[in-house]
Design a protein around this nucleic acid. Sequence first.
DNA 1: CATTTAATGAAAATATATGTCAATTGATTT
DNA 2: AAATCAATTGACATATATTTTCATTAAATG
Lengths: 150, 150
Amino acid sequence: MTFLSDTALKHELNARGFRSTPQRQKVLRIFMALTQGEHLSAENLHQALEEDGEHISLSTVYRTLHLMVYMGLLRELELAEGHKHYELNRPMLDHHHLVCVHCNQTLEFSESSISEIGKKTAETSGYQVLDCQLTLYGICSKCYMPEART
Amino acid sequence: MTFLSDTALKHELNARGFRSTPQRQKVLRIFMALTQGEHLSAENLHQALEEDGEHISLSTVYRTLHLMVYMGLLRELELAEGHKHYELNRPMLDHHHLVCVHCNQTLEFSESSISEIGKKTAETSGYQVLDCQLTLYGICSKCYMPEART
DNA sequence: CATTTAATGAAAATATATGTCAATTGATTT
DNA sequence: AAATCAATTGACATATATTTTCATTAAATG
């Protein structure tokens, strides 16, 4: 799922009764151009599209994000920045996050055992896994001082 | 952290420069009275307090939730219902979630290896872990049908 | 018990996300 | 390649969740 041509995307969509549209292609292209670890909010994505000269309405941006999460193409991250962020779903990479609840600094890490656990658990419950996220919330060394305030 | 008396809460708060207030005590009591696996949104909590005859403003409810997450007393869950839910943080229980991205059905599961991984990762990065969440997103068996739509 | 400063409540403000609906466009059939 | 039909889009309105502001109240400290 790391790379998907327009026609491959079309097949994925059509197979489920959805349509391939220029908007959907452009959104996916934006995500494919990001480096590993980068993630965008709906607003970020909307801007990135504008910067590429693509005028796609915010409603469509939101609808496209949901659809692509639902299809397993994107993963939705909740990293305490107040709004959701999205990135390409690359299940093989076992890519997870560690977030400071104070300053919101976010670190990435890999841990290959997680997806195994995820697969097993999901199977037991009859689920088809789309995404598997281990998120650690804590306090980073800069923020961890007795006098810290909210 | 499964049970915390008013005076223990006071010590925790004062040690960090925060104050013990009746509102904070009442909020924590509500969470301590929940059964394992139950979780509340800010709105739910507000209502639960009202039902107990406690009038605490929504602002205070939100502020208290943030503070308690920051202190590691509560954990914040993002289970695709559109708003955040909260529950007592019981680090020993290794209690995680599996969510259907289509119908939002949520299942709980335990997996004791996760907190080990979390601890190790956080240490490496100099973080103090407050919470460790493995969240699996997928499609449940009821929703997994070729004709499924958004 | 006086002082200091954090915390609260009420209301307004903000932000994020969703819904509506007419117009458009993609997939499929003829 | 034209016609058909439903999915999709964009613009705008709306909803909802959360945050901020600020005057008032009340913990903690000495």
